[in-house]
Design a protein around this nucleic acid. Structure first.
Lengths: 129, 129
DNA sequence: TTGACTGTACGAAAGCCTTCGTATATTGTT
DNA sequence: AACAATATACGAAGGCTTTCGTACAGTCAA
């Protein structure tokens, strides 16, 4: 019934997803040109990755034109949530909230950032279940 | 001069690190027995991983006894901080704080957890630079 | 001393990730 | 029509991760 959710993206896949999240629907050529990496990567490498990502359902592909058009199958927010929860589980068997606490506890945070976080917390309190 | 910091641990390595963080100094046998995985893993697999992790400087090894004794080279808190910052950079080129905001924004959080986070923020405000 | 037990070392297989080269088809220009 | 440019498909190499089998050394009890 329910569609299987796609696997966590690998590093190279993540770089492509970032381009798609930023640009929206893109062709291989557009993605290839947007990818400015320390180590440049060949056109067919990007193509191959996109073919694999299509199989894994990380992206969807519109084949109606000669140049296929790719779209990220999962929104950036959803994928981030998934990856964070994945990290929390793998790294210490904990919840996302625990991970947030760990991260905050040992990271320098400016007052401005503190305020932003507080603001977010207040919103959540308002809308909580 | 400065020691190179060890690389991010792979999945199997992370499972071993979690045992070491929990138990402290341990022999291969102790680690092997503590690792209760869905798929059980052989003794020599754990041994081999620890040898590799020693090379990578993820663990240190005390060879003075016949059964070598291993210790995590990096504290859990430090490693978590590293992995979180790594994820933030890889997944959206952002800071740890941005990642925290993303995570909080889309994750259900209980009132009790909200209070814990607020408490932590207050402490940070007190001790901030 | 001999044999069972427990330990480390290490080679190698299997699988995945990433990369690219090459084959082939389509489009557009002269 | 012929050629250059541009597209997809795909095989395969090289590297890393994970797994285990096997070899070999030290320990201990009978």
């Amino acid at each position: 019934m329910a569609k299987r959710e796609p696997p966590r993206p690998t590093n190279a896949e993540l770089e492509i997803l970032r381009v798609l999240w930023q640009r929206g629907r893109s062709t291989v050529r557009e993605i290839h040109e947007s990818l400015r990496r320390a180590e440049p990567v060949g056109y067919t490498t990007v193509l191959k990755l996109l073919q694999i990502m299509t199989e894994k359902r990380l992206v969807t592909r519109d084949v109606s034109a000669r140049s296929h058009v790719y779209t990220a199958a999962t929104s950036q927010a959803t994928m981030l949530r998934r990856m964070i929860s994945d990290l929390a589980r793998r790294a210490f068997g904990g919840s996302t909230v625990s991970l947030v606490l760990h991260a905050l506890a040992t990271t320098p945070v400016t007052s401005r950032e503190l305020d932003r976080i507080r603001g977010l917390l207040d919103e959540k309190k308002g809308g909580k279940a």
